[in-house]
Design a protein around this nucleic acid. Structure first.
Lengths: 181, 181
DNA sequence: CTCGGTTATGCAACTAGTTGCACAAACCTC
DNA sequence: GAGGTTTGTGCAACTAGTTGCATAACCGAG
């Protein structure tokens, strides 16, 4: 039940159309809650039906026309409720770790190449996060909102740092291992 | 498409019945690929139909009777294929980070309590991992299989370490923030 | 010996997310 | 102005995971 709340957050930051939301998800909220445009349009429809958001008045609400939404008071209230409500962390699911565990049984043949690829992807993501940090959070910006957003970004940076370190270490171990099959 | 491979891995480590698998998932593979017993039974049925595993001969294959499975050669081959195949890391989804981002917009009221709860949960998980490490990976155990499994466990330990640190830091920030609403 | 809890297997319905595609308007180029 | 690309919205079908419940055997207590 998080996508609607991700959308409400994005719309409170700035009223947008479905496509604008999709783009903004791709380079911000989507870093920790990704969504396709199909999901977003579907969810916008539901949120409007529930009276949490409404379409901004537009001349021609036809196909191929932009339709922007803004959050209604009920939507803001729902988001506040959801944010404050206790939620259990949901169980991890990590394919790469699963594959390593499988490799302990069926052999490591072919795995190292993909570990290297993942390492490269995580490095790139890390660089992107650092760039955002440099650009959006220069020292001195410490209004509460900036602090919270910076905190979220720090989580992203530290997580990517962890993965690059772990993958580097894993590849070192692999180098010492006989390439079993 | 990972659950079947998680099950194949578990069954290769040791042939088991559905319930035994469920229990083992809860305290081992489930740490990074959780599954309910309903999922497991369903998947066992599919895997058997596909000829990747088979039920071990039992007297009464009736309800309420244990039914154990073992992996067939085709199953092992499929697991090896899957392990070696390149796979993109799938996009992150983290509710807690989303809630923090939402809090930047609708206020932090009520959030700190749940952060504390999460911190406690992560601390407990970390302690559990450390205990497993102490018990199962004493210095000197370095057959390839042990190394790989230890590597996976290290990922778990380091991830939980990251979360406890990040949450601690987040709570410190919260303490300085005005409790907006 | 029967009643209630535990062990064990499993179906059905639901929810969330993914994939593939259709359609229309706007805009740009030849 | 015909034709291709980009922008924008959206449906339908599918896949994976979750929740709720049904069923049956076994086992111990009274």
């Amino acid at each position: 039940m998080s996508l609607p709340h991700a959308i409400l957050t994005a719309l409170l930051e700035k009223p947008s159309s479905g496509l604008e939301l999709t783009r903004r998800f791709d380079k911000s909220i989507g870093y920790f809650w990704s969504a396709t445009h199909q999901q977003i349009y579907r969810e916008l429809g539901k949120l409007e039906a529930e009276g949490l958001i409404r379409a901004l008045p537009a001349e021609q609400p036809a196909r191929g026309q932009k339709k922007s939404y803004e959050v209604l008071p009920a939507g803001r209230a729902e988001l506040a409720r959801w944010t404050a409500a206790a939620q259990d962390p949901k169980p991890q699911r990590d394919v790469l770790l699963l594959r390593l565990r499988a490799a302990a049984v069926v052999g490591t043949a072919g795995l190292a190449a993909d570990l290297r690829r993942h390492l490269e992807l995580h490095r790139r993501q890390l660089a992107e996060y650092r760039e955002i940090e440099r650009r959006d959070f220069p020292p001195g910006r410490d209004a509460p909102q900036d602090r919270l957003r910076h905190l979220v970004l720090r989580a992203g940076i530290d997580l990517e740092t962890f993965w690059t370190q772990w993958l580097t270490h894993a590849l070192e171990e692999f180098a010492e291992l006989p390439d079993t099959d």
